[in-house]
Computed example of a mutant assay.
Amino acid sequence: MRVVIVGASGNVGTALLRRLHAEPDLEITGVVRRPPEPTGPYANVTWHPIDVGADDATDRLAEVVRGADAVVNLAWQIQPSHDQRRLYRTNVLGSRAVFRAAIRAGVPALVHASSVGVYAAGPKRAFVRETWLRTGIPESSYSRHKALVERMLDEIESDHPTLRIVRLRPGLIFQRDAGTEIARYFAGPLLPGSLLRFGRIPVVPRNPGLRMQAVHADDVADAYLRVLRADVRGAFNIAAGPVLDADVLGRAFHGVPVPVPGLLLEGAAALTWQLRLQPVDRGWVRLALKAPLMSCDRAAADLGWRPETDAVNALRELLAGIAGHAHTESPPMADDARLPGRWGGLLRGRLPGTGNPY
């Protein structure tokens, strides 16, 4: 079975490669903008350097995916948040290029990395199924792009009914090796990461909207493998328990929950983002406050999927990775101190939320 993974060297891609390497009957092809050194999880992969947002991406991708049994599209940019045109180019136009290439090459299965961010605002004390409204959270460009791409898939499903299309919609995805990457993309150089080595978060913001779901990257990878092996279609919510809120985090990390109004959280994010102090704009806070909680019953029933790591331990592993500067040798997950989001980058004028880290 030949599987082509587009965006194979990031957080989920790295975990998926680790999982697929344990399957002796799989031949793996990776597509990324900058191929990693073929060591560790990146070994035994046929790499192709392609920028999915480039004008010739569809033609080049079609040649790579021809003859594949499945294409998994993981390509997505979180940063640079101050360059919305670049994000749209990769996330929306790049996804379109992957889809068009798969159709042109006659690939029988297309698996796309969607997200809880595709959903409209929803409940924080109940769990929505995959049929929940998919209009995204308008203030978040990440959410808008996820919703746009899923609408593309709706049209493709209508026009190409024989193409098996699957969408995975995970919550926050954590693993130790992504510690440096996630710190760069979501916190910036001012995060006192070394303080996290003691497994403590001194102050935890409490807000009724700050109830989120997370999942370990290895469990997400297992879900992708199950999708590749099973004859399933449609969407699957992917998350582990418990729901992460101020009470759960306070107990787990010895922190004190402090009530914080949502408007204050959004305003602080907007101001510090505009000042280039950190890379997360107001839209990310709005998404955290408004995104619904997801039911994963379909993944359990149709895929037999159940997470092996709970959400608290997944987060604990991530925080240890941030404190220990955990990373891999792939460009998105590198420990290069000169990149935006690191002190070395800041000293070189590479401000958080700028530049292309992929």
Results as ranks from 00 to 15, higher is better:
I238Y: 07
L315H: 02
I156S: 07
E266W: 08
L289W: 07
T131R: 15
V204C: 09
R144M: 06
L16C: 01
L271H: 03
L339K: 10
M333G: 06
G321P: 05
T180G: 06
T135R: 12
A22M: 08
E266F: 05
P242T: 09
G53H: 00
A252S: 13
P36V: 02
V312S: 03
G179Y: 00
A311Y: 03
W284A: 15
L244T: 04
Q278C: 03
P108L: 15
P41M: 03
V52M: 01
G262H: 13
G262D: 10
T46K: 12
T180D: 08
K124R: 14
D25C: 01
H145G: 02
A235I: 05
L93N: 11
D219T: 07
G179E: 01
P352R: 00
A337W: 03
R176T: 14
P357D: 15
W47G: 04
G262V: 05
A301H: 09
G199Y: 12
L346Q: 03
S141A: 15
T46Y: 03
A68S: 13
W273T: 09
S141T: 14
N356Q: 13
L289H: 07
L61G: 04
D159C: 05
R316P: 04
L277Q: 10
P205Q: 01
D83Q: 12
Y358G: 13
D56Y: 05
E329N: 13
R350P: 00
V32F: 00
G188T: 06
E130Y: 09
I238H: 01
D154R: 09
V72P: 03
G209A: 10
Y119M: 04
A299Q: 09
P340Q: 02
R164Y: 10
L190H: 12
L172Y: 14
L249T: 10
I50A: 01
R184I: 01
V71M: 07
F253D: 12
F253R: 07
P332N: 07
R19G: 07
R233Y: 02
G94W: 00
P35V: 09
E150T: 09
L196V: 11
Y358N: 14
E181T: 08
F236H: 05
R89D: 12
P357C: 12
D222G: 06
A221R: 11
P357W: 02
